[in-house]
Design a protein around this nucleic acid. Structure first.
Lengths: 110, 110
DNA sequence: TTCTCTGTTCGCAAAGTTGCGAACTATTTT
DNA sequence: AAAATAGTTCGCAACTTTGCGAACAGAGAA
């Protein structure tokens, strides 16, 4: 085991993004936010087969990961994609997959 | 709440991939596998700051998600990227991010 | 056979996740 | 002020994840 050595910051950031996307409800939320102009909590809730308390929790996780942001617009709350971090995630995933392009030689193969 | 309705298969599959990548050790493993020709368990273990039992567990999760495969080569075990599923993941993530391109209009913004 | 090398599995502990209904907060309407 | 609307937070239950050391399993070497 490699001692006295942590993961790289990039690995940790990418893992954080991936973890946040690691639930079908959160994937669905991100897709919904991208397809809509109206993105109030209620609209999101209507799209998901789970209770509002649970939706709120998933939104909190996406927010903690930096992928979305919410602003209060009484009496509603409007959620939307955090564009800057979204671009960062897109770029990091892209780079991650690019490093093992389909054309790259991979071990275990002849 | 949307009743009697599950998530789409695509959302579930993408979430499964994302979840598998949602830990820095597993990100590191995938990057390592992509950068090496030798990818025995021991080599992977040497790169990570965790016990071999834990490494074995992370490898199992990546295997369960279909992202890698392992073959016994006595007395060692050789791991490698599962190219077909890796391509699928790459494609699905690409498509997921593409649907919210940086140029797309997003709610909450003027 | 016995010993060594390489990984996996077991059993455990601590912590995190997912989900719900009920209770709460804040604003707006009546 | 009281009631309605829109979400969040609380408290709970069930389950999963992460991590470790110890015990185990399988193949090759002594």
């Amino acid at each position: 085991m490699k001692k006295n050595r942590d993961y790289t910051l990039d690995s940790e950031q990418l893992a954080r993004f991936a973890k946040a996307l690691g639930h079908p409800a959160r994937i669905t939320i991100m897709e919904f936010l991208a397809s809509q102009d109206s993105c109030f909590f209620g609209d999101i809730h209507d799209e998901l087969p789970i209770a509002k308390a649970t939706v709120s929790q998933h939104l909190k996780e996406l927010k903690d990961a930096g992928l979305i942001q919410g602003e209060i617009e009484p009496p509603k709350v409007r959620y939307c994609i955090h564009r800057e971090n979204w671009k960062l995630a897109q770029q990091m995933f892209g780079n991650f997959f690019a490093k093992n392009g389909a054309d790259k030689k991979i071990c275990c193969e002849e």
